[in-house]
């Protein structure tokens, strides 16, 4: 148990764990990492349970000073990792000693990097989770993004550090972040509010990520999607990855900090396994949608979880 000093906070760095369950009915979104795969792998590299809290770092990472021994791992976006002035690899369990400085630079590809350390960030849970919900100023470190001078408490390492050092994600399994991504979707829940032409336009067009893209949602721009009977519905729950089409016919993909309910038609919902691709997409990147069935989606999810379970080399845990 020790602390980390935030020397530079980076552009937008928040404490996240896997997020809240059971609070959407009170209007509080789950939060948690936008790229859940990268977050889970960072935790597994350092020997933590998947649920341990780590940092989500957006575009430009923080500079941190460590006051105790730890194993750290950086995953997600391709980002320079510099420990005491020397380059260090991503997707790898790295040893840090008291007094070490670790800096994450600006992302080369991707958008969000994840930093986990053995023992996790130790902030008090709020409503069952350590995740930060920025708009609600809830959870995480004081309900906000990190600032210069913050002291982050860390927990006890779950395993001897020597067992963990050097573990890495199989290089061939490290995702490549492309400026053009495909997102698989299940049509609905309001696909019936669009004419066949609207569905066709949605599935055959390429949409561009606008600057209005954050943890709440990604607003896209491209061929307008016509509605059948207007765009408003009696407000209902918005699932993760729900694609809202508002009055101007442009889609918005709703993500982990989304509003729990809303009154706009949702043409389709992005598969959970493809949300990490969105997490790593930046403004001006391109998104295409492809329809799959519910059965296909569930089979993909099973394959995906097995893939995650086999992603780390030398995994003797």
């Amino acid at each position: 148990m020790s602390t980390i000093t935030v020397v530079e906070p980076g552009l937008l760095t928040t404490v996240q764990d896997l997020g809240r369950t059971g609070t959407l009915r009170y209007g509080i979104p789950p939060s948690g990492p936008l790229d859940r795969d990268a977050f889970i792998l960072a935790n597994r590299l350092v020997g933590n349970p998947d649920t341990a809290a780590g940092l989500e770092c957006t575009l430009t990472g923080p500079a941190l000073e460590f006051h105790g021994e730890a194993i750290v791992a950086v995953t997600g976006a391709d980002v320079p990792v510099i420990i005491n002035g020397a380059d260090a690899p991503t997707w790898t369990a790295l040893r840090t000693n008291p007094g070490d400085f670790l800096k994450l630079g600006a992302v080369r590809t991707g958008c969000r990097a994840y930093l986990s350390l053995s023992g996790g960030i130790n902030v008090p849970p709020v409503l069952g989770s350590q995740a930060t919900y920025l708009r609600g100023r809830l959870g995480g470190f004081g309900g906000r993004s990190l600032q210069k001078g913050d002291q982050l408490p860390t927990g006890p390492a779950p395993r001897p550090l020597a067992e963990l050092e050097g573990r890495r994600v199989r290089p061939e399994w490290v995702p490549v972040h492309s400026p053009t991504i495909e997102c698989r979707v299940i049509l609905g829940p309001q696909a019936d509010r669009f004419p066949p032409e609207g569905i066709r336009i949605f599935l055959e067009s390429t949409y561009r990520v606008t600057p209005a893209a954050d943890r709440m949602g990604y607003r896209l721009t491209g061929s307008p999607i016509p509605h059948r009977h207007g765009y408003d519905i009696l407000s209902d729950g918005i699932p993760l990855g729900g694609v809202q089409v508002v009055g101007d016919g442009q889609p918005i993909i709703l993500l982990v900090d989304r509003q729990s309910t809303g009154g706009y038609t949702k043409i389709a919902t992005v598969l959970s396994v493809d949300i990490p691709r969105i997490a790593q997409a930046k403004p001006d990147h391109l998104i295409r949608f492809r329809e799959v069935s519910v059965a296909e989606a569930h089979s993909l999810l099973g394959t995906h979880r097995a893939w995650l379970d086999g992603a780390i080399e030398r995994d003797t845990a």
Binding site: V185, P189, L234, G242, V294, L300
Partner: peptide, 15 residues
């Protein structure tokens, strides 16, 4: 109605 791969929407009369 499926709402993605992790949720199902149970829809009553739209009134």
């Amino acid at each position: 109605v499926p709402a993605g791969d992790l949720a199902v929407s149970i829809e009553f009369e739209s009134v």
